[in-house]
Design a protein around this nucleic acid. Structure first.
Lengths: 172, 172
DNA sequence: GAAATATGTCAACAAGGCTGACATAATCTA
DNA sequence: TAGATTATGTCAGCCTTGTTGACATATTTC
């Protein structure tokens, strides 16, 4: 990993000049750059539909969790009811998402993607999937495991198991 | 890594039912959850100053790259001149960032943090640094290297070396 | 029957993206 | 040196997506 040399930080540390934050700061910035480029992929595609990133997140998590309730979706996205309602309404009106009254609890509106929604989900996932696949192609199994662990440990502890359960859900 | 089991996806794959995107989708969602929580840390602190995430990014990269030009900062943040100008103006007016005419090229306004800006930088970095440190504490050296590699390979190839050069810059 | 819950809705606001046009000063180049 | 290019700033206006708080409805639970 010659590109990812830490020589400067190492030298500083040996000289006793570095704060302990040196190492972490590398990761702070790697996360910024990686996420910046990672989310940039779907944006151009979304414009064709007049949608934004918020729509993408909703379509993605509804497609991945068919029958999810509004409350569960709010939990995942960590935005307010109103922020979700706005984009969800548009997605329902334009036929990308369907609502269905809950069977056990009829107060719930369970959410599903339509075929159209499924197609959008795939279309938006494709470039991100490609980027991930490309990144993983340079890594061996140990590296991949390390990346997966690191990301999962960044998630708030009290929500980690839920997040991992969702991410590892059956992929259709 | 019992928590990060891939049993569902594995079963599907063995049954020949899974699309090749199954593995990547786990990373797509891990990135979402990790970044969601990662950026949530500084938000409460920023409110005390009446600032938002955009201010954070500017303060961070100016503090990390003293004397950076406006053009270089735009390159990092990948936003428009106007979006930057708005928050930069506020940071200068409130005394967190200083401008200084370039010596060689006097058209440039080189940016520096003030002591006040430096203090804010540290204050905002602290919780993120703590989160990273906490995540790394559960990992061995191989895992850490894997995480670092994975994130760097997610960055657009034509900007990767710049990003890595910045991230590995001398940490003060 | 009353309280709690799931959801929706409305009005209003703020942050921070965007565009496009135009201005100024400084540098580079033919 | 004149003209083109570059670095930056600024103005007006727009859009998305986040926020709050109040209130309404239907349903479930106690």
């Amino acid at each position: 990993m010659s590109e990812i040399s830490k020589s400067d930080a190492d030298q500083l540390r040996e000289a006793g000049l570095a704060e302990s934050s040196a190492d972490e700061t590398v990761f702070i910035e790697l996360l910024f750059f990686a996420y910046r480029d990672f989310v940039s992929d779907p944006d151009a595609l979304l414009q064709e539909y007049g949608f934004g990133r918020a729509h993408h997140r909703v379509v993605h998590f509804v497609a991945r969790n068919p029958g999810i309730s509004v409350a569960e979706l709010l939990d995942i996205l960590q935005i307010t009811k109103q922020s979700l309602a706005r984009v969800l309404k548009q997605l329902v009106e334009t036929g990308f998402v369907q609502q269905q009254q809950g069977a056990q609890d009829r107060r719930q509106r369970l959410l599903f993607t339509t075929e159209k929604g499924e197609a959008l989900f795939d279309k938006l996932r494709e470039p991100q999937s490609r980027r991930i696949k490309n990144a993983l192609s340079g890594l061996d199994a140990r590296d991949r495991a390390g990346a997966e662990r690191f990301l999962s440990y960044l998630i708030n502890e009290d929500e980690r198991s839920m997040a991992l359960r969702l991410s590892n859900a059956v992929d259709r």
